[in-house]
Design a protein around this nucleic acid. Structure first.
Length: 555
RNA sequence: GGGCGGGUGCCAGAGUGGACAAAUGGAGCGGAUUGCAAAUCCGCUGCGCAAGCUUCGUGGGUUCGAAUCCCACCCCGCCCUCCA
């Protein structure tokens, strides 16, 4: 069965039909970097990652235009932006002052610096918003790589896969200019200090993605818009493309005045610039000529398209559906399509749902707020975190729990053991003919990852003596799930102990292990059990393994 | 007020007209193994000895038949111009 996905735009599960089934273009709305990303953020990024890995898999079939079936593997160009612009001066969360988020982050960093909580090797100037953004962007990419986010790994070789909004402002200005030229945007205010708005009534399909219609949108219900800004718009739903504000912490020159771009415009530009002509390297010459615009975007601005969807896939958290992606569709189609009202920008819109923790919303005040860093520090390995976060269907609210994390760790351990055994297994044994098919069927059914995992588990249970071929099969599955390939904390070995979970051989622990070994040798099992309990109280779990050694893990 | 995604067994989480008392993992129980554990393997885990009975948010309905379809209601999550 070819891949089918729930399309937020049509509200149906439907075949994913890309423009070119041998090469998929995929854009994911990435993080805003004013703080460390948390596991909730990562849920949507990892769901997108699993999707792209599945599309790349040799097991995945995709329907081509005209109905033909395209068999995997195939190439995916996956772009994920980093929003490193603060650009929210009306931001309610910044406090009554509507303070910019980067400024808030700066204050927080300054406090951390004063308190000596910043790592020594980090030099960041808390008064410099660009440095703050860079600081958090780097930390994000680091976390993402540890969790196996492929786009973050690839961006080491090809940084254009993770573009930064601050470096794409020239392109945004070009697109805004185009929107004004085509009558979709207008300026208010005095020349040199103008604000540019997208005029929503100029794009008839506005609202299709979110299900909102202009008359149903209750203006101000979200409590985030200021009356003063509303008053100057032609229509209450019109949204910001450019704001002239020389006092802003991050600002650029533009034909309309010094200021900053609107939030939505950045994704239009970053996706178009990298994905419209897949593989075309950004040429320095063209960039110069176009004022910093890449060739794909330049081409899009010169040659309008008749295609409905000009990129194949677009993903983002469920909160992005409205207004962000709604606005992105409007402005992208208005800028790039011959007939904007016929456009959808992306052929398929993919929105993972939010993650809950212990059945509740994650929040700092509830104490159920986790970042991957928090968990790494506790010695939880990336593979377990990744598995726990991806194991639930992307369109329901997953529940992240400590028990779940333990369950996930066990599964990861079992799968690893299976793979290790398979790698030492027979050479010429044939692989189970069923499991690949079931796995593919599950994944192609709107990414039913839980069922796919169940198929892997059943297969492992019935495969008592895995062969080399089974190992290859397991790797094929894991290339999709991305779990076993993740690095884990090094194992430290001593004469007696094998220390897992990144534990260092503590002399106190070693002493106890030796004492226990002696007790056992003398058949003093009472004492040896006491020692096990003592170690448990110290936070260590032990088990006897082959060769007379003891494996030590965090309890 | 409006738009959207969900609600399944002790927990997590599949299933979306009959093969469903409901996959898979965890937890629990029993057994093999182990000095005891751990890991692994086997069996059980709604009620009932059984034929059978009662379950899939709640209440109605459609159907020979519903966890699955329809209607109403309740709950959780997201959104209605910062948010994964």
């Amino acid at each position: 069965m070819p891949l089918r996905l729930y399309n937020t735009l049509t509200k149906h599960i439907e075949p994913f039909i890309p423009g070119d089934p041998s090469h998929i273009t995929f854009y994911t709305c990435g993080p805003t970097v004013y703080d460390d990303a948390h596991i909730g953020n990562f849920r949507s990024f990892l769901a997108a990652d699993v999707l792209r890995r599945w599309i790349e898999s040799p097991l995945c079939d995709v329907q081509a235009e005209g109905g033909a079936r395209h068999r995997g593997p195939r190439r995916v160009t996956h772009v994920m932006n980093i929003t490193d612009v603060g650009h929210m001066t009306d931001d309610a969360e910044g406090g009554e002052s509507g303070e910019d988020r980067m400024s808030v982050a700066g204050r927080r960093l300054l406090e951390a610096k004063k308190a000596g909580k910043l790592p020594d090797n980090v030099s960041v100037d808390p008064s410099n918003p660009y440095q703050i953004a860079e600081f958090y962007a780097n930390r994000f990419v680091e976390d993402a790589r540890r969790l196996g986010l492929k786009v973050a790994i690839e961006s080491q070789q090809d940084p254009t896969l993770m573009p930064r909004a601050t470096q794409k402002v020239a392109g945004m200005i070009q697109v805004i200019r185009r929107l004004i030229d085509r009558g979709h945007a207008y300026a208010v205010g005095e020349p040199g200090k103008q604000t540019i708005y997208f005029h929503v009534p100029s794009f008839a399909p506005y609202g299709k993605l979110s299900g909102n219609t202009l008359d149903q949108l209750a203006e101000g219900k979200g409590g985030r818009i200021s009356a003063a800004n509303q008053a100057q718009k032609k229509h209450p739903a019109d949204f910001l493309l450019w704001k002239s504000d020389p006092s802003h912490v991050m600002k650029w020159d533009s034909p309309w005045g010094t200021g900053y771009p609107g939030w939505h415009i950045e994704c239009t530009v970053m996706s178009a610039e990298r994905l419209l002509l897949p593989g075309a390297p950004a040429s320095g010459v063209v960039k110069q000529a176009a004022g910093g615009v890449g060739p794909a975007l330049l081409d899009a601005l010169v040659h309008l398209t008749d295609q409905t969807g000009i990129i194949d896939l677009h993903s983002g958290g469920e909160d992005n559906i409205f207004p962000h992606h709604e606005c992105e569709i409007a402005q992208s189609c208005a800028a790039f399509n011959t007939h904007p009202e016929k456009g959808t920008f992306a052929r398929m819109w993919f929105h993972p749902r939010f993650l809950l923790v212990d059945g509740e919303k994650m929040s700092k005040s509830k104490g159920n707020f986790y970042t991957p860093r928090d968990l790494f520090e506790k010695g939880i390995e990336p593979a377990a975190i990744r598995f726990e976060i991806i194991k639930t269907h992307y369109r329901s609210n997953a529940n992240f729990t400590e028990q779940g994390l333990k369950d996930s760790q066990r599964t990861v351990d079992r799968w690893r053991t299976f793979l290790e055994r398979a790698d030492q297994g027979a050479r010429d044994s044939s692989v189970d003919p069923e499991v690949g098919r079931w796995f593919a069927l599950a994944m192609s059914n709107d990414l039913n990852i839980a069922e796919a995992i169940a198929e892997v588990n059943k297969w492992i249970s019935r495969t008592h003596e895995p062969s080399l071929n089974d190992g290859m099969m397991m790797r094929t599955f894991d290339n999709v799930l991305g779990v076993l390939e993740l690095s884990r904390a090094a194992t430290a070995q001593t004469e007696i102990g094998v220390f897992r979970d990144g534990l260092a051989p503590d002399p106190a622990v070693l002493a106890k292990l030796n004492e226990r070994a002696a007790a056992r040798a003398g058949k003093n099992f009472k004492r040896s059990d006491e020692i096990r309990d003592e170690l448990a109280k110290m936070g260590y779990g032990i088990k006897d393994i082959a060769g007379g050694k003891v494996e030590v893990r965090r309890a």
